[in-house]
Design a protein around this nucleic acid. Structure first.
Lengths: 224, 224
DNA sequence: ACAAAAGTGTTTTGTGTACACCCATGC
DNA sequence: GCATGGGTGTACACAAAACACTTTTGT
């Protein structure tokens, strides 16, 4: 293919979902040595003439059953150099941030037992995968503060409390409920659907959606 | 080396300097086909067991004579997929942002005639190098708004007008001189050296430096 | 004295932040 | 009617933005 020998190239998808008011990340147990059995990001190698996204798609579906069409958002994060970390030899892995509103695993019985795990209680991870996860969390924070990326983590209809809980989980701190509502509404990216929550033992919240032409929009940066 | 065939891996350093009130980028003419003679970023291949920074260092010094020790700041930018763009076969290039306050080329007679070229009048670039340059410019803007990165582009002593000109060149827009000064001074990252400019045909400006313990600092984001 | 750029201050307007009360629902 | 979270409004402090005059140097 080439006269130049280079390190191996791999990709690692950091997939976030939001379920039960917890921000979660897709992990699977390694099925091979090294670090067989350790929780890890379900990534894989890039073949010649395969795009990076193509490699993401293949390793995701093979190792976790998550289809790329279920990801509303994909963005390249960072290239990590594994020099010295992997006994199989020098490799560079390019991490991707992926956001999905489908928060259940369709094939939980795959060899690696893929699961969406709460970022607040992460297990030990293989290799340098913890740094990769942290990079993903940092970028997700940026996105939530500067764009309407929340649309890719929430269901079509959600309450202001859902949105508030997502922001608190992702930013890792408490936000004043009233000021949060005020800021969000002032951005003009939400539509009041006119409907209310059903079957809650308290005053039901209004159900909102993101305005369709405001999805994937930059917003005035938020400061919390 | 590996049982996995992958695309070639290369690195591309986007080196910025600030000279004569112009933001400039390091370019060299390609000395080989394809696109022989076209202006390009002086990057190169990554060898197995070579770090990405090691590859940056080697290609920079070989193709442009710029030593890595002259770069006050290096940061990884983005991985670009060249699939279909390079007749030599599939390659992934990882771009790096580099900032230098040494703004003259020591070896202008190298084969590629390396030069620091004003970003306001860029020539045609080889391959997708224009996208890479744009990514570098975007990230530089971010850095200037959020950190004291200007320290890596300016000489040790500089006037408020120098700093102001750098920001205007990098952000590509006019900034109110008085509010700029006020914001910069309020950040508490500058020291007044007590000396003044010499030999200008008008009132000389005070010479400032960045406080040494505030270099590489995050600052309260600036809004211009 | 004149040109040219440096240095200084005020006012207005918007927004982040803190905080307290009423409202709708299920039980 | 009571517990639980949802929804609303006000006051204060701070910072961004717009804007005009005085000062210091070389010629």
């Amino acid at each position: 293919m080439s006269i130049h020998a280079t390190p191996r190239l791999t990709v690692d998808p950091v997939v976030f979902v939001f379920r039960e008011n917890k921000l979660r990340i897709l992990l699977a147990k390694r099925t091979n040595d090294p670090e067989k059995g350790a929780w890890s990001i379900p990534g894989g190698h890039v073949a010649p003439n395969q795009t990076l996204l193509g490699a993401i798609e293949l390793s995701l579906s093979t190792k976790s059953g998550v289809g790329i069409q279920s990801l509303g958002y994909i963005e390249q994060l960072y290239a990590f150099d594994t020099l010295g970390l992997d006994p199989r030899g020098h490799a560079i892995t390019i991490a991707f941030l992926c956001l999905s509103s489908q928060s259940t695993i369709k094939n939980p019985n795959l060899p690696g037992n893929p699961e969406f795990i709460d970022i607040a209680s992460l297990p030990q991870l293989a290799f340098d995968h913890l740094s990769i996860v942290h990079k993903g969390m940092d970028q997700l924070k940026e996105l939530l503060l500067k764009t309407t990326a929340a649309v890719y983590l929430l269901p079509r209809y959600f309450t202001m409390a859902d949105l508030h809980n997502l922001y608190e989980a992702a930013l890792g701190k408490r936000l004043d409920r009233r000021n949060f509502r005020k800021k969000m509404l002032s951005l003009g990216v939400l539509d009041d659907s006119g409907n209310k929550q059903q079957g809650v033992a308290n005053r039901p919240g209004l159900l909102y959606t993101f305005k369709s032409h405001k999805q994937n929009d930059l917003i005035k940066p938020l400061y919390f």
